[in-house]
C-alpha cells in the first residue's frame, strides 16, 4: 500500500508526517496514530505497512526529530504530550487508536493521562516513562553506536543486518539530531517522570502493553508496573525480543496491535 510523506505545519510546528494510503479512502478505516521512539521515524517500516492494511495510520516525526523542526518550547516529554493533544485537535482526529513505542510510549501515556477524549484505545510498546526502583537498565548514552544498538536487540543476527546497512549522510545527521533531542528530553531523571505513576489511573480507555521479554533498556518489570497502574491494562510479553519489537518482531507486534484494536472495536459494537 502506498503511503504519503509531507512536511507540513501542524498545530504551529512544521513536522514530517507519513500517512497510509490516499486520504480519500481514509474515512472507512479506524484512525491510528503511531508515536515513534528515540530512533525517530525517517522511513516507513514493514511494521507500519502491516498496520496500514487495517488502519488510517498517521506517523508524525516528533518535533526535534528527523526532518521536523526543533521548536524552542520542546524541553520535556510533557511538552510532546501537549503537542500531540494539539495535533489531535488540529487534524480533528477522533476515536483514535494511539500506539507509542519507547519514548513515544511515554509520550502516549502522558497524553492519555491528560485527556483521553479523542482516544479509543492505547497501546504502549516497551514504553519509557515509569521507573521501578532496583530494576537495572543499560545506559544508552554511554556506549558507542554499535554497542548501543546491540544492547537494544535480542537476536544479534538482526543487529548484524542493521549494522551492515549503508547509512546515508542525511540519515546519519537525522540520527544525530534524534540523539540530541532524546538526551534533552530524557537525561534526568533518566527516561522517566517520577510524577507519571500517580496519574496513570486516569487512563480510562482499553490499554494494551507489549514488551520484549529481553528488553534491557526498559525491562518487562516496567511493563508490569504500567499494567498495575493503568486500570484494566494487559501486558503481553514477546519471547526472544529486545527493546525494539516493531523492528525485531514486526509481524507479531503488528498482529497484537490489530487483534487488540479489533477486540476493542467489537466490544464497542456489542455495547
Amino acid at each position: 500500500m502506498a503511503h504519503t510523506e509531507s512536511i507540513t505545519e501542524v498545530a504551529g510546528t512544521r513536522i514530517k508526517l507519513m500517512r497510509s494510503g490516499s486520504e480519500s479512502g481514509a474515512g472507512s478505516k479506524p484512525t491510528m496514530l503511531f508515536l515513534h521512539g528515540a530512533g525517530g521515524a525517517s522511513v516507513w517500516l514493514p511494521f507500519m505497512e502491516s498496520l496500514a492494511q487495517q488502519f488510517n495510520l498517521l506517523v508524525p516525526e516528533h518535533p526535534g526529530f528527523g526532518d521536523s523542526d526543533t521548536p524552542d518550547w520542546l524541553q520535556r516529554v510533557d511538552d510532546l504530550a501537549y503537542y500531540y493533544l494539539d495535533l489531535l485537535e488540529a487534524l480533528d482526529l477522533r476515536q483514535v487508536h494511539l500506539v507509542g513505542h519507547s519514548l513515544g510510549g511515554w509520550t502516549a501515556a502522558a497524553l492519555a493521562v491528560k485527556d483521553c477524549s479523542r482516544l479509543a484505545s492505547l497501546t504502549l510498546i516497551s514504553a519509557a516513562g515509569v521507573h521501578v526502583r532496583g530494576v537495572e537498565r543499560i545506559d544508552n548514552f554511554m556506549g558507542n553506536p554499535e554497542e548501543t544498538l546491540r544492547g537494544l536487540i535480542y537476536d544479534q543476527s538482526i543487529a548484524d543486518q542493521l549494522l551492515a546497512m549503508e547509512v546515508s549522510d542525511a540519515e546519519r545527521e537525522r540520527q544525530l539530531k534524534n540523539r540530541f533531542t532524546t538526551a534533552k528530553l530524557v537525561w534526568h531523571p533518566r527516561s522517566y517522570d517520577p510524577h507519571l505513576p500517580k496519574w496513570l489511573h486516569r487512563i480510562r480507555i482499553p490499554t494494551q502493553l507489549i514488551w520484549g521479554d529481553h528488553d534491557q533498556l526498559f525491562p518487562p518489570r516496567i511493563g508490569e508496573e504500567y499494567e498495575r497502574l493503568i486500570p484494566g491494562a494487559t501486558l503481553t510479553l514477546l519471547p526472544g525480543c529486545g527493546h525494539l519489537p516493531p523492528i525485531e518482531q514486526a509481524d507479531k507486534t503488528a498482529a497484537l496491535v490489530v487483534d487488540f484494536v479489533n477486540n476493542v472495536s467489537a466490544g464497542e459494537g456489542a455495547a
Binding site: F141, M142, F180, W187
Partner: peptide, 14 residues
Amino acid sequence: MPLEMLLPPGYTSL
C-alpha cells in the same frame, strides 16, 4: 575516555 563520555549529546551544539 570514550567519545560518548567526553561529549554527551547537547554539551556541544549539534
